[in-house]
């Protein structure tokens, strides 16, 4: 309807363009607010003078956050955990998806069903916890990787990607003398690279953001992720509120700085990886 340029149409466009600009700004306000608080002085916050921009701008809160050893070490630990977990997840996903993408693999359908059922059958937190305990993984690094090492949903997406490749490529590889492992690495994987990258990002973001398994499976603070340390930081103030004590254990600007640091990897990477995620949603929706 590109030709329609009536007065009413122009008014409509103007109204809704403005409306969506406002909506976008409103959606960003929570993030802008926490950002400006992290850069404001403690006194300015207590006096209620901080609105949507820093007042008495200072990086004091960031310096204090970085001086707190537990926060920095948990951040570094989280980065390593995220990388390690993503590598394990991607390997597991490819190992399952590539063979299952072969339609004439004997037993493939049964195994596929075995995977699909796990999306609907949830054993619950406690049996999962006891299972992790049986494998002696409680309070180890692996407790934060192994229980979530393979998602059937992502595996199906990967499988669909392999199936989307032209079967003549596989034939050609076979004629050239490639065995299945060589075909996977030299022919299939380079071609499904975009899907692989998308799934890796899904796994990475999921691992960075997840709190529950740290709560369930881990006790020692050296295995705390940044989310866990941030949670304690946020709650330290909640506790004092319940007792009616006015003094804050952790000042608001330090909390804000910690929040900003914790979300920085996602927010910084977001503009670059956003298009993968948009595509990733659609990959899942095709099946949906």
């Amino acid at each position: 309807m590109g030709e329609i340029k009536s007065k009413a149409e122009r008014r409509f466009q103007l109204f809704w363009n403005t409306f969506f600009i406002v909506i976008s700004i409103v959606a960003l306000i929570p993030i802008i607010r926490v950002f400006s608080m992290s850069l404001s002085s403690k006194d300015a916050i207590l006096a209620g003078r901080v609105f949507l921009y820093p007042v008495q701008a200072t990086t004091e809160a960031y310096i204090r956050s970085f001086q707190s050893g537990s926060f920095v070490s948990s951040f570094i630990f989280s980065v390593f955990l995220m990388i390690g977990s993503t590598i394990v997840c991607v390997i597991m996903t490819v190992l399952a998806a590539y063979p299952l993408s072969k339609r004439n693999l004997k037993g493939g359908a049964v195994i596929m069903t075995l995977f699909v059922l796990t999306m609907y059958l949830d054993p619950g937190i406690i049996p999962k916890y006891l299972n992790v305990k049986d494998f002696k993984l409680i309070d180890t690094f692996w407790a934060l990787i192994v229980p979530e090492a393979l998602s059937a949903y992502n595996m199906i997406i990967m499988c669909t990607a392999f199936r989307g490749l032209d079967s003549s490529l596989y034939e050609a590889a076979k004629i050239d003398g490639c065995n299945e492992v060589q075909t996977l690495f030299k022919v299939a994987l380079p071609l499904v690279y975009p899907t692989l990258a998308t799934l890796a990002l899904f796994y990475a973001v999921g691992r960075w953001n997840r709190l529950s398994d740290v709560l369930y499976y881990v006790n020692s603070s050296k295995l705390y992720t940044v989310q866990m340390v941030l949670k304690q930081l946020i709650e330290s103030v909640k506790l004092t509120n319940d007792e009616g004590i006015q003094t804050q254990l952790v000042a608001d600007n330090i909390k804000a700085a910690s929040i900003v640091i914790s979300m920085s990897p996602m927010v910084i990477a977001y503009p670059f990886i956003q298009k993968y995620f948009t595509k990733g949603i659609m990959l899942g929706a095709v099946k949906g």
Partner: peptide, 28 residues
């Protein structure tokens, strides 16, 4: 441009953990 920008901005909070969101919500 506005369509794309709105979509991008509204999708951003999806990448924040609930720990972070609860911290932000508390401050709001």
């Amino acid at each position: 441009k506005i369509r794309k920008a709105t979509q991008t901005i509204l999708y951003l909070p999806n990448f924040l953990s609930w720990v972070i969101i609860s911290g932000i919500i508390t401050q709001l």
